[in-house]
Design a protein around this nucleic acid. Structure first.
Lengths: 194, 194
DNA sequence: TATGAGATAGACAGGTCTGTATCATTTAGG
DNA sequence: CCTAAATGATACAGACCTGTCTATCTCATA
């Protein structure tokens, strides 16, 4: 195993440790010292890989966005119809909400702490949220006309974000159930009332 | 004007100044020194009214929740039907999203920074969000059976929270438009497909 | 006018923050 | 084995944080 591979592994380990702490305690509330202590690396190692905390945050967000994107790929690949794909996304969120250590969405949290347009963290959040919305729209455009798909994608996106917040407040079960019923009703009316 | 009235005014002035800074810059990112400088009061004045920053935060949130509740009262009082009341709430949010200095929802931000159940800030957020959801449910129960009203209230709540986040990301117009269309479709299907 | 409560400005303590510097140690490859 | 890069441990600088304390000022009321 070469030095370069070790360095890459260490870099990734720092990112994943920071992700866990950022998600649980918040961005400002998590200090560099806590991250390196939890990751078991020296401070200079961290600063060699990431020139500042802000750069580390953006790297954590970008890694997590890519991780989520790949998870969706694997989740949706074996699912045939668009409707079933939407249901699969709901299922995934339901499992997430009930997973141990669930503490809300790091992208939402980051938007709260760095909510100024143009800031690197804001833009990283914007990229991820836009990608999720676009993904929903791509699925829906397989069965709905473009404008309808866009509105429906916005709606599903807002429902998912709202459900994530409700889950953080301890009402994930109820949120997912309502989200499912609403999506069913909308798909039903889209079929019948078009 | 008595000393007591002066003190109450000063206390309220601190709360409103802190609200503005917390909303714009975040909770951890806003220091006591910045609050008192912006409010033009001495540090001891602030600590006489609020024994700690955490207590100040909770007071800001509770004041803002009450302020929002009163705004809704005034907004909905002259509106006759439940459907029109829902539309009025959408209208209010649309105006909010476009108001100068809109920077997302302070309650969402606070949940991101103090997201641990049991924490005083978490509980303050929980109270406000639950109150909004309950209010939506009360409106809907005037025309829908209880269980349907509950699901619909959850849905509208999630849409509103998601729309607020999208507005923070600069897509408020689109979010409100989709929210309106979805609510119309749901009300229509509720009437026709029950 | 005398009094006493509230406000002010500012220093201060003790801790934490980000980021830098130093020096010893480990480790992979020639 | 030897070298050079990477890391570990730790001290440090300078800024900022919350919260306390003091000394002075203002002002309504008794």
């Amino acid at each position: 195993m070469s030095l370069r591979a070790d360095a890459a592994e260490k870099r990734q380990h720092i990112i994943e440790t920071a992700y866990r702490l950022f998600k649980r305690d918040g961005l400002h509330a998590t200090g560099i010292d806590k991250i390196i202590a939890e990751a078991g690396v020296a401070k200079m190692t961290m600063y060699r890989h990431f020139p500042s905390k802000e750069v580390l945050i953006v790297n954590v967000l970008d890694w997590r966005a890519e991780h989520f994107r790949r998870q969706l790929d694997m989740l949706l690949e074996p699912v045939a119809t668009p409707d079933e794909q939407i249901v699969a996304i709901f299922d995934w969120h339901e499992r997430w909400f009930e997973s141990p250590g669930f503490h809300g969405c790091l992208f939402q949290h980051s938007l709260a702490e760095y909510g100024t347009p143009g800031h690197a963290v804001f833009e990283a959040v914007s990229r991820q949220k836009h990608a999720l919305k676009q993904r929903l729209q791509d699925i829906l455009e397989q069965t709905l006309p473009e404008e309808r798909a866009a509105v429906f994608a916005n709606t599903l996106f807002m429902l998912i974000e709202g459900a994530t917040m409700l889950a953080h407040l301890g009402q994930g079960k109820m949120a997912v159930a309502s989200m499912r019923k609403t999506a069913s009703a909308l798909l039903f009316s889209a079929d019948r009332l078009q």
